[in-house]
Amino acid sequence: MAVGAGAAALGPGNGATDPASAALVGDEQLTFYGTHQPGIAAPAQTHGWLTAFDLASGATLAQVKALLQQWTAIAATTMAGRSLTAGEDAMTYGRGPSGLSVTVGVGASLLTKLGLNHQIPDQLAPLPKFLNDALVPASSDGDLCVLVGANDGLVAAHALRALQRAAATCCTLRWQVNGFADAAGSMPSPASTPRNLMGQLDGTGNPKQGTAAFDQTVYAPATADPAWMRGGSYLVYRKIRMLLDDWDTLDRAGQEAVIGRDKLTGAPLSGGDEFTEPDYRKFTPSGALAIPAGAHVRQASAQANNGATILRRAFNYYDGPRSDGAPDAGLIFLAFQADPANGFTVIQQRLAGVDSLSTFIRHEASGLFAILPGCRPGEYLGRELLEGDPAE
């Protein structure tokens, strides 16, 4: 059932809540079990909370196994909209699963601490330092990560609280970022592209789900080495602060030139609609490139990066004013891909040097995680890593 289904019953400017629409949004359920974790390709969600943990001193492989088993049970139960225990809190009483997804990943540092260095994929090699990075180490990296997405904040908080309680037996919280996006039912249609705090549509160029190209871009193949990553993915996280006060000094035409798209419709400046392929060779009547040379859409394109492509999922954050009075706001940027070295890294190396947008953003935190493959009923996330695959 699609997020926002039933929203058409609301007339323009009607502030009333449509009960049918609310019920549909609350009832939306994603299937937990499967080849891939569902949070990777989930429909756009209103809330996205990413949390990283570090192993406590002396924590053992057996404790990590028990934790992943608990997290699997929590994810499967909460995503189905069921109570975790008979006596748990009533935080989500009367609510459905609300499109909840729980996505679990591991960092290279976890495998090192568990003595599993031989199981570290080449794809988990540390990201290079990029030009103009301003990363805060304490807000970056981590041994484990959990991404919780949902269309209801209480549903997301309920699941995250359960995950954090389970983790307390062998982990400490390293950092957490809380993000938001367009509310379910508030966009023109359920399939509409979300907007970010710069007012731009965000995610137009993502690979199309249900295609072989999508699977090749996002998921580790069936022949992946090590075998425990087959069906998994790699997540690059970046906390990108937007210099909104500087951005606001540009008029609409100036902002569109930086991005390379019409601000309202998302259409490339070369013409068409949001999903028209940009024409990077087109010139205006005055002889200028229709899409400027430094425009973000041009510099981030597969054509400019030897075919490099990622699945982009992003949430906004707005944490109030900084000490200098500027807004502490921007993007929780999430990029899923089969190989970061041939995906995010290629693109970001180019963007950091020549993208006009780089003047208006700062990368302040970063993380790279192996997103575990999905699992079947009776199994748990990470079993192939911690126990090996009997079929191998």
Rank of each mutant, 00 (worst) to 15 (best):
M1H: 14
A5G: 11
A7V: 14
A8Q: 15
G15I: 11
G15A: 09
D18H: 07
A20P: 12
S21F: 11
Q29M: 14
T31H: 12
F32I: 00
Y33Q: 07
G34D: 13
T35Y: 15
T35R: 15
H36S: 08
Q37L: 11
P38C: 04
I40N: 01
G58A: 09
A62Y: 12
A62C: 08
L67D: 01
L67T: 01
I74E: 02
M79I: 11
A80P: 05
S83G: 13
M91V: 10
G96P: 00
G96W: 02
S98R: 04
L110E: 00
L111K: 01
L116K: 06
L116D: 06
Q119E: 14
P121T: 07
P126A: 07
D133N: 07
D133T: 03
D133R: 02
A134L: 14
V136C: 13
S139E: 07
G142D: 03
D143A: 06
V155D: 06
A156S: 08
A159W: 00
R161I: 04
A162Q: 01
R165N: 09
R174M: 10
S186R: 13
P188F: 15
S192C: 13
P194F: 06
R195P: 03
R195S: 08
R195L: 08
M198P: 04
G205R: 13
G210T: 06
T211I: 09
T211G: 12
A212R: 10
P221K: 06
D225V: 12
A227S: 10
R230I: 01
L235R: 00
V236Q: 04
V236K: 02
R241E: 01
D245L: 11
W247Y: 09
D248W: 13
L250T: 03
L250H: 03
A257N: 05
V258E: 06
L269M: 10
E274S: 07
F283K: 08
P285S: 09
S286Y: 12
L289N: 08
R298I: 00
A300S: 00
D319E: 14
R322K: 14
R322M: 10
A329S: 13
A329L: 13
I332A: 15
L334Y: 03
N342F: 15
F344Q: 05
T345M: 09
T345K: 09
V346P: 02
D355L: 05
A370R: 00
L372R: 04
L372Q: 02
R383T: 04
